[in-house]
Amino acid sequence: MSAPLLVEEHDDRVVLRLNRPEVRNAIDSATVEALHDACAALEAAPRVALLIGTGGTFAAGADIAQLRERRRDDALAGINSGIFDRVHRLPMPVVALVDGYALGGGAELAYACDFRIGTPATRIGNPEPGLGILAAAGAAWRLKELVGEPLAKEILLAGRVLDADEALAVRLLHEVVAADDLEPAGHRLADRITAQAPLAVRLTKSVLDAPRDAHPLVDNIAQAVLFETQDKTDRMTAFLDRRKGRP
Results as ranks from 00 to 15, higher is better:
Trp141Arg: 14
Leu42Gly: 03
Val218Thr: 12
Gly104Asp: 12
Gly100Asp: 03
Asp63Tyr: 07
Thr204Asp: 12
Leu90Tyr: 03
Leu203Thr: 01
Cys39Tyr: 06
Gly148Tyr: 04
Pro184Ser: 06
Leu6Phe: 07
Ala169Asp: 15
Cys113Ala: 14
Pro150Phe: 07
Asp85Gly: 11
Glu43His: 07
Leu151His: 01
Val87Gln: 00
His88Ala: 15
Arg243Cys: 13
Leu203Ser: 01
Arg246Ser: 07
Asp28Cys: 05
Ala65Glu: 15
Glu166Phe: 05
Glu175Ser: 04
Tyr101Lys: 14
His174Glu: 13
Ile133Val: 15
Glu128Lys: 02
Leu146Gln: 11
Met92Thr: 05
Asp37Phe: 03
Gly78Gln: 08
Pro129Met: 06
Asp181Val: 04
Cys113Thr: 15
Ala152Pro: 00
Asp165Val: 12
Ala44Arg: 15
Lys232Tyr: 11
Asp165Gly: 12
Pro184Tyr: 09
Pro211Lys: 10
Asp191Glu: 13
Ile52Phe: 02
Thr57Pro: 01
Ala140Pro: 02
Ala190Val: 15
Ala185Trp: 05
Leu151Met: 06
Gly130Met: 07
His215Phe: 12
Tyr111Arg: 00
Arg70Gly: 03
Ile117Ser: 03
Asp12Tyr: 10
Asn19Phe: 09
Arg24Glu: 08
Val225Thr: 12
Asp12Lys: 13
Met92Glu: 05
Ser206Gln: 15
Arg171Gly: 10
Asn80Trp: 13
Ile52Trp: 00
Ala121Pro: 01
Gly186Gln: 02
Gly118Gln: 05
Asp163His: 08
Val161Glu: 03
Asp231Phe: 05
Pro211Tyr: 10
Ala137Thr: 05
Arg17Pro: 02
Pro120Asp: 08
Asp85Gln: 14
Ala140His: 13
Leu156Asp: 00
Gly105His: 02
Leu97Trp: 03
Asp11Pro: 08
Ser29Glu: 10
Leu42Arg: 05
Gly82Met: 08
Arg72Thr: 11
Ala178Glu: 15
Leu173Tyr: 02
Glu43Cys: 06
Ala140Asn: 14
Ala112Lys: 00
Pro46Tyr: 05
Asp209Thr: 11
Pro211Glu: 13
Gly105Trp: 00
Phe115Gly: 03
Asn25Thr: 11
Val98Thr: 10
Ala34Trp: 00
Ala167Ser: 07
Arg86Lys: 11
Arg242Thr: 14
Ala169Val: 08
His36Thr: 04
Ala135Ile: 02
Leu16Ile: 11
Arg68Tyr: 06
Arg70Ala: 11
Pro91Met: 07
Ala45Cys: 05
Gly100Val: 04
Ala210Phe: 02
Ala135Asn: 01
Val32Leu: 10
Arg246Val: 07
Arg17Ile: 14
Ala158Ile: 04
Leu172Cys: 08
Arg86Pro: 02
Ser81Asn: 09
Thr54Cys: 09
Pro247Cys: 01
Thr229Lys: 07
Leu172Tyr: 05
Asp12His: 14
Ala96His: 04
Glu43Val: 13
Thr237Cys: 06
Leu97Lys: 01
Glu228Phe: 03
Tyr101Gln: 12
Asp219Arg: 13
Ala238Pro: 01
Pro247Leu: 06
Tyr111Glu: 08
Thr204Gln: 11
His36Asn: 11
Thr204Leu: 13
Thr119Val: 10
Leu6Gln: 11
Leu199Pro: 01
Ala210His: 03
Phe58Val: 09
Ala75Asp: 12
Ala40Ser: 12
Gly138Ala: 06
Leu67Glu: 09
Gln196Gly: 08
Glu175Asn: 04
His10Lys: 12
Ile64Arg: 10
Val170Met: 01
Pro91Arg: 04
Val95Ala: 03
Arg246Phe: 11
